[in-house]
Computed example of a mutant assay.
Amino acid sequence: MIEIKASMAGTVLNVLVAAGDEVTAGQDVIMLESMKMEIPVDSPLNGVVQEIKAEAGDFVNEGDILMILTT
């Protein structure tokens, strides 16, 4: 189980995948907005999206878990 965490505080603009989707290493899975900049959050490994813990409009802090993958 792999936790994808927010790299900085910001607002979730888009969740680019859904539970059950297969993702590849480096694929953007969530787009954050912070200080009027869009910050992509990518998958560190190949895997399957197990659970999404954030949705568009949510404010997240650095280190918050956004998504859980299984390999």
Rank of each mutant, 00 (worst) to 15 (best):
E62W: 02
V17L: 12
V29F: 01
L16M: 12
E22P: 03
D58F: 02
I4W: 01
G26T: 03
L13C: 15
Q27H: 07
L13W: 14
M1L: 15
L16F: 09
E55H: 09
E51A: 10
L16N: 11
S7T: 13
F59D: 13
V48A: 01
L16G: 05
T71R: 11
A19S: 12
M31E: 11
T70H: 10
L16Y: 15
L69A: 04
V60M: 10
D28F: 02
V12T: 00
K53G: 04
S34V: 04
L45F: 11
T71K: 12
L13E: 13
G26V: 02
D64T: 07
V49F: 00
V23H: 06
M1I: 10
M35E: 12
L32K: 00
I65N: 09
S34D: 01
I68S: 07
I30R: 04
L32V: 03
N46M: 05
A9S: 15
M37Y: 05
E55W: 05
K36H: 08
A25T: 13
N14Y: 15
M67H: 11
K53H: 15
I30S: 08
T71C: 03
A54M: 04
T24H: 15
T24S: 15
M1T: 13
S43T: 01
D28M: 07
T70N: 13
K5A: 12
I68P: 00
F59A: 13
